[in-house]
Structures are given as structure tokens and as C-alpha cells.
Amino acid sequence: MRASSFRHLLPSAVSAALFTLILAVAPPQAFAADEAAPLVTDPQLEERVMDLSHKLRCLVCQNQSIAESNAPLALDLRNQVREQLAAGKSEEAVVDYLVARYGDFVLYLPPFKGTTLLLWLGPALLLVAGAGWLGWRLRRRAEEVRSAPHLTRDERARARALLDGTSPGTSPSSEEPRS
């Protein structure tokens, strides 16, 4: 029963009707006869709505934000976001509103808390571990270079040729393994 057979999208007619309703309640504005009317009356508000919507997950969709999805629930939630932002609520308040109802699952940017500690610190920890290992390797190698005998002129020439990639040179595999 893992395939979610019970998820149903609302008939698109319902969503279209709702969408039209939203348009209808938007105050009419005067436009030049040949100028197309923007879909939204307040582009700045709409930008905030879309910015926030991109960070919110549509619960019924496979994996889309409510900005990208046209599922009816996504439309509803987008309208909620628009309404609440228009009413003067802050982005944080809208996010809190949705989290209270749907949980952290709606957030594409997970909150920083106990259970997400490893998520947020993980990359930094990996970086520190990687850098530490790298530093250790490099120092060890650098010491080897210092203690290694200097190259003869002939070896240097061969190395240069290798660098230029013009000569196949000899295979470094013949080098003595070091421990």
C-alpha cells in the first residue's frame, strides 16, 4: 500500500473556477485598449508570493514546489500565501502558519534544529574532515619531497617532457612503492 492510490487531484474544473474567482475579486484596473492586463494587480506582491512559493513543497505532488505545481492544493496554498502576504503578514508568519498545519514537510529549506543538525553541519563536517586529511597528506608528502634526493639534470629534462605531454616518457609505475 505504498503506492498512494488514494491521492486524488481535484477535478480541474473546480480549480479553474477558483482561479477565476481569484481573478474576479482582484480590483479592476484601467488599461489602454490594446494593452493586455497583467494577471496580477500587484507585481511586487506577486514576486514575494512566488519567491516564497518556490520554497514550499506541494504535498500531493511528486516533488514540486507550490509555485511550479498546478495541482489544486498548490493553487489553494499559493492563494493562502498571496492573501496573507497581502494582508500584511510577514514571510515568517506565513511559513509558521503552514508549518503549524502541514509540518516541516512543507519547507524545502529545512529548519535548523536538533533533528536537522547533521543535515546542516554535515557538509561543513565533511569539508573539515576532507581538509584535515588533505593537510595531513600534503604535509607528509612535502616532507618526502624535502628528504628526497634532488633530481639529476637528465631526470629534470624527462620530467619537463612529461609535463609538456609531448613525450610518452617512461611509466612512473616503475617507481619503488613507498610505505
Binding site: 509540518g103 529545512p110 533533528t115 557538509p123
Partner: peptide, 17 residues
């Protein structure tokens, strides 16, 4: 619990790396 990890997280982490 259930969380989602999406584009804002990956962008925040990936670009600096």
C-alpha cells in the same frame, strides 16, 4: 519526523563548496 530537502538547501550548500 518528515522533512523535505529542496533547492534552497542545495544552493546554500553547493555554491560555497
Amino acid at each position: 519526523g518528515k522533512i523535505s530537502v529542496g533547492p534552497p538547501y542545495f544552493e546554500a550548500v553547493f555554491v560555497p563548496l
